[in-house]
């Protein structure tokens, strides 16, 4: 048997490596899930034992990864078309779609049960709902049906801090809903900025992103509207129990920068955008990553300062 034929057998039998299965969990998305869930857990007024806290974050991450695997199983056809997703394990042929489905379902059940055992039923219920929302509501239903896909579907990515909070407190409260709302409102401008400079990818895959269905002008207007609403929410959160002087200062600076970026995007036309290869849109997208990281970092810092009599109001 030659090496060439062995390689062919490898891809057909799905003889995947450990890294291929790990890639199914969408590690980059998982980092956001881990970070925001950790902040939710730390910001909660009830302390948890470090081992329980570690287990909670781990099972939330596994649950998030499971929904990523199920999303890749469902979206394998469009992942093959899009440049950005072509090298994922299923389109690359290293893991079969059936295997990804079994892997995702098993991990989802495992993560929910283990989170219930390690923490409480509220956190586990929220994790189960998040997986259901991401896979069924977003991936199977909204993504290919409406240009509002990421507006509503963004809720799935917004749940982790709420789950982290629930893992510590066993309940849902105004503060955890505000953290949810922060990610929920941040998601549309973040993804629409990406869609502005990746439009052909979504168009080829037949995904009805706002840029494809309503054009770039409308998308630019939408980015500005959502950014204004997000800024009001983000700064307003600074006056609640999870906020404080540090958070407020960070929020004011970041939201001014974000608003300025959204205004620049709104004022531009396609000729100007094409001329500099979407430099403004790409800068706004990069800023959006720092935006979320720094907001949640500030919430965590406020919580960390409380024992020293400094955090919060």
């Amino acid at each position: 048997m030659s090496d060439a034929s062995l390689n062919t057998v490898t891809s057909q039998t799905g003889e995947a490596g450990f890294g291929d299965y790990f890639a199914l969990l969408k590690p980059r998305v998982m980092t956001l899930v881990v970070f925001t869930a950790l902040v939710g857990l730390l910001a909660a007024p009830v302390g948890v034992h470090p081992v329980v806290g570690f287990a909670a974050i781990l099972f939330i991450a596994v649950g998030g990864g499971a929904s990523g695997a199920l999303n890749m199983w469902w979206d394998a056809d469009i992942d093959r078309v899009m440049k950005r997703t072509r090298s994922r394990p299923i389109p690359a042929g290293t893991i079969s779609a059936d295997e990804a489905f079994a892997f995702g379902i098993a991990l989802a059940g495992f993560a929910v049960v283990m989170l219930a055992l390690a923490t409480n039923l509220v956190a586990a219920g929220l994790l189960a709902f998040t997986i259901f929302f991401y896979v069924v509501i977003y991936s199977m239903w909204l993504k290919r049906w409406t240009p509002q896909n990421i507006v509503i579907g963004g809720a799935a990515g917004a749940f982790p801090p709420m789950i982290g909070w629930a893992a510590a407190t066993g309940s849902v409260s105004v503060e955890s809903v505000l953290m949810f709302a922060l990610i929920f409102m941040w998601t549309p401008p973040h993804f629409w900025a990406l869609a502005l400079f990746m439009r052909s990818d979504y168009e080829n895959a037949g995904v009805p992103m706002l840029t494809v269905t309503h054009g770039r002008r409308v998308t630019r207007v939408h980015i500005l509207i959502y950014t204004i609403l997000l800024a009001a929410l983000a700064v307003g959160t600074g006056f609640t129990a999870v906020g404080g002087p540090v958070y407020l200062a960070v929020a004011v600076v970041l939201n001014l920068m974000f608003l300025l970026g959204a205004l620049r995007i709104w004022r531009r036309d396609e000729v100007a955008a094409e001329a500099d290869a979407y430099a403004v849109e790409k800068r706004f997208f990069r800023l959006s990553l720092y935006y979320l990281f720094l907001h949640f970092g500030a919430i965590a810092l406020e919580a960390a300062l409380v024992p020293y009599g400094l955090g919060g109001w």
Partner: peptide, 15 residues
Amino acid sequence: EHDLHKRRFRRNLGL
């Protein structure tokens, strides 16, 4: 010893 065997070993070790 083929790459397939190495990959399988790494996967089993990881698991």
